[in-house]
């Protein structure tokens, strides 16, 4: 109050005017103060939400291709993949406040995967084969006499079909490893299995792919 009176007094060079001006200034300030507080909670919340949306779009939205790619491989269908991705993004936004990690892609793909699995369980339960023999030792490789594998560009269609035919649990580790380049540890976190299981599933998946490719190659 003293500071504002002092300023007003020097500017007006008059006691009476200075008092009036200080009073009016306080009244104005009070009105503004009042205005900002009347809407306080909601405005603050809106700001916060705006901020949340901005942060989300900056850190999670760029991984849209990764999300779609995984969903597309898991559902094996464009339309369902789009639905999965959209639903996963909404879920991710809802739980974004809980996201503390650095890797938004791994976090998002965990949600995409869970969304897809829920959908698979409801719509294609038969595709999820839970009876896996995870033992690496059971991998049946004809290592004693491996055929020479050589992929021509014409084989790409065969490879795509071979990938599509893999059980979903195998398919996802191949996609996460070879298409997304995640480490075993990151895949273990996304799929929620031990790291050793990631390696054994990859081994079995690749063995199957090689076999499928060899068979197709024979037919072709």
């Amino acid at each position: 109050m003293d500071a504002s009176y002092n300023l007003a007094r020097w500017l007006t060079r008059n006691e009476h005017d200075a008092k009036d001006i200080v009073q009016e200034a306080y009244l104005r300030e009070f009105k503004l103060f009042d205005g900002s507080h009347g809407t306080d909670a909601r405005a603050w919340l809106k700001l916060k939400e705006k901020d949340k949306l901005a942060r989300f779009e900056q850190s999670i939205l760029p991984h849209l291709d990764a999300a779609y790619n995984l969903a597309r491989w898991l559902t094996r269908n464009e339309h369902d993949a789009e639905d999965m991705v959209q639903e996963a993004y909404l879920r991710a936004f809802k739980f974004f406040n809980a996201f503390r990690g650095v890797d938004g892609r791994a976090w998002l793909l965990t949600i995409v995967r869970n969304t897809c699995y829920t959908w698979l369980q409801q719509n294609r339960a038969h595709e999820i084969t839970t009876m896996f023999d995870e033992e690496i030792h059971s991998v049946d490789s004809d290592a004693s006499n491996p055929a020479t594998l050589a992929l021509q560009s014409a084989d790409q269609q065969i490879l795509r079909e071979a990938l599509d035919e893999l059980p979903v649990e195998f398919r996802e580790v191949v996609v996460l490893r070879d298409l997304e380049g995640f480490s075993y540890k990151e895949i273990a976190d996304i799929v929620n299995i031990p790291t050793g299981t990631v390696m054994s599933r990859l081994a079995r998946a690749r063995e199957r792919l090689k076999q499928l490719l060899c068979n197709r190659g024979d037919l072709a």
Binding site: T148, L159, L179
Partner: peptide, 30 residues
């Protein structure tokens, strides 16, 4: 053989890119 397979998957056209309008739809729903 492992390397051939791995390179085949990595370099093949197997990465599905999101359709153009999917991002817009997601942003709207967000």
């Amino acid at each position: 053989n492992h390397q051939v397979l791995r390179n085949g998957i990595k370099t093949g056209p197997f990465y599905f890119k999101a359709p153009v309008d999917l991002q817009r739809r997601i942003q709207l729903s967000l």
